[in-house]
Amino acid sequence: MKKTLALFAAVALVAGANAEDKIVIKGSDTLGAKMVPQLAEAYKEAGNEVSFEIAAEGSSSAFTNLLAGTADIGMSSRNIKDSEVDEFTAKGMEIKDWIGAYDMIGVIVNENSSIEGLTVEQIEGIFTGDITDWSEVGGDAGPISVYTRNTSSGTYKSFQEMAMNKRDYGADTQKMAGNEQIAEEVAKNANGIGYVGLAYTDKDGIKAVAVNDVELKPENAKDYPIARSLHYYTIDGKLSEAATKFLTWATTDEKAAEIVSRVGFIALSE
């Protein structure tokens, strides 16, 4: 028993010793799969001595990790919910929002589909399960296979708010782990439909449909009905200097903007 105690004591040494220059970023898959790793790499390339840890499980995990103190920066592809703000204030923390980029959610179908455009109402019908066949929206007959992100995803939530009138997804929808999985499935399923961030629409086998007759192009960002901003969240007053410097760089520097548009988002300056 003595030894076991000693063992526990040794383990207990693990006193939150975070090295000063480490930045832990957690949250959205939309930001974390492509944009943030590359920003991090470029930031180090620019001569900054920091190290990064990135985990991208979905926007909700940004807030749970910030709340638990296991992340410095939370990435989120949706606005923080009121109830989440409440949780932070309940623990005496205030949250700070940094906008990192703008994104348009593309509604994608198989490239062989005859559908070129949909209205928001039709999209709502399809994703809530009211419309189940392509013929109902003017396509060739065939049962619609709907692919959505998993529930932790910010895209899941913002799509629900922007395109589905806040209604719940139909039970027939398939939940996919990442944007890419959706694109992959839609590319291989002639009757598939899904949504992905703008950065992921440039892939063989899929095409983005126009929504309310507005095409999915960066220059249409203002008119496109399903567009949103991408955020970094931090705890006010608790952010390390290195992390602050990185965020400032990521949201203002020209190089960063170049990377943001390279991965297919719209940089703040544009």
């Binding site: 499980e57 979905g58 909700s60 995990s61 807030f63 749970t64 709340l67 638990a68 949780e87 998993n150 529930t151 932790s152 939940k175 782990a177």
Partner: peptide, 9 residues
Amino acid sequence: AQELAEVDA
């Protein structure tokens, strides 16, 4: 596996 990472303890 899919949802645990995202929820508050």
